[in-house]
Write a protein that binds this DNA or RNA. Structure first.
Lengths: 243, 243
DNA sequence: ACATTAATTATGTATAGACATAAAAGAGGG
DNA sequence: CCCTCTTTTATGTCTATACATAATTAATGT
């Protein structure tokens, strides 16, 4: 066979056709797209194949379907972006710089309220409190203060956090189901010394909490001197879909 | 029939069972789950029904499948969060405060590079340059400097931006396909006066660009005095799935 | 005229079977 | 022992059909 046959499965082609029509503006929000039986005639396939394509587009939020009425293009996307929360070590080495970690303090504390208002606090549990400094080429890049619930992550007690960054270790060892990130700007304040900047220097504060079910896992505040670090979020509108 | 039959379709139940097993920790990353023919025996259904459940979990990123080998629980989720990019007016009124908009400047400029490195600049096109101040209860809440491509959005030339916030108007009138957000911390600098704070005050800078296809639409820099504003991102890990 | 009931229609779910495809395991040949 | 070829197996795709469900339209009874 010399012809370059269509490699993509048919349901993916149908899906791509419709997705393209919506993205290009040929189909606008509220428009009705052809009925399943029309599409199956158009593509010469079974209804299940059309249905698979349309079901996928519904899950991706591009279409809405109403029985007896038909299938319609959804209203514009929810205004959200995919924000890559950085693994600091990867971030530093990714810029071709040498990463180093310093453990400034390590304590086991009785569980103060790791989670002030959101979910039930771990009663009687203990908490591992760490302060770390991340360096790039020997220059302070970020300082983090972290609490780890030893009830949720007992293994953390025996890890040598002078070797592994707590964030990387947790990421690899502890799955989480919910996370909250809070991004603020603030002066360096009492961390100015550790960061090697003036007290008034504008810094990016990244507060991050993770849970597994309703059990808190960790709460970390990372402080980046403003000049050295941006958080970047890229978003591809409707095209992105599920993945 | 007095029994409360299972309302959920079977494929959703199968999916929920597996999702639950992964979330609860009964199944860990890398574990193999039963083959399709085992699941169809277990649930007493056809293979297509099992397949639909598993395909959905693959699209949600919970499972990976390899031919001949089987179906496996995926590695921990990609570390991304859904970050709600705020509509400032909604943000202010949502806090029960009175919103007011001031247009500080308005110019039509020849198209300087709206997009320095990413995508092709609009040749010969003109750009609408706006500077706005957002106030909450009469107090400066944010200042934004915005460029709008008049080639992409010719209607913008005739809009009265003393009445409508440019961001809200664009959101309602111009669909976009790609966006990039950059979050930084920086001192207030030359905008200190407009914000009513000291020059050195730590501020949150939100740089935001949107495109439609490869045509730039707008580029805005919004500056928030650090004390008044946080960006919050919530993320529900594996549980959330596609939607 | 109005409420109730029945028919119509598009989508939702499920089935049993078929063939294609990719990857792992096994068999043979050098 | 290494390389190649064949077989096996689980997933990937697709079909044709069936019945369920929800919403609209049409028919009917009072």
């Amino acid at each position: 066979m010399s012809m370059a046959e269509n490699a993509a499965p048919l349901h993916a082609r149908i899906r791509a056709d419709i997705e393209g029509a919506i993205l290009s503006g040929a189909l606008k929000a509220g428009d009705r797209i052809p009925f399943e039986h029309e599409l199956m005639a158009q593509y010469g396939c079974a209804r299940m194949t059309v249905n698979k394509a349309l079901t996928g587009l519904v899950e991706a939020g591009l279409l809405e379907r109403r029985k007896r009425a038909g299938t319609f293009v959804s209203r514009p996307q929810i205004h959200m972006a995919a924000l890559a929360i950085p693994d600091i070590q990867a971030e530093v080495t990714g810029r071709g710089r040498i990463y180093r970690l310093e453990l400034l303090s390590r304590d086991v504390l009785p569980a103060v309220s790791v989670d002030p208002d959101r979910m039930r606090p771990p009663r009687g549990a203990k908490v591992l409190a760490l302060t770390c400094r991340h360096l790039a080429d020997g220059v302070p890049f970020a300082v983090e203060e972290r609490l780890i619930s030893l009830k949720a992550v007992p293994d953390a007690a025996s890890v040598d956090f002078t070797q592994v960054a707590p964030g990387s270790w947790l990421l690899a060892h502890v799955p989480w189901t919910e996370a909250e990130h809070r991004i603020t700007a603030a002066p360096a304040g009492r961390l100015a010394g550790a960061l090697g900047v003036d007290e008034g220097t504008a810094c990016l504060l990244l507060d991050r909490r993770t849970w597994r079910g309703d059990q808190p896992i960790t709460h970390v505040r990372q402080v980046f001197p403003g000049a050295g670090f941006d958080l970047v979020a890229r978003f591809t509108g409707a095209a992105g879909g599920a993945a």
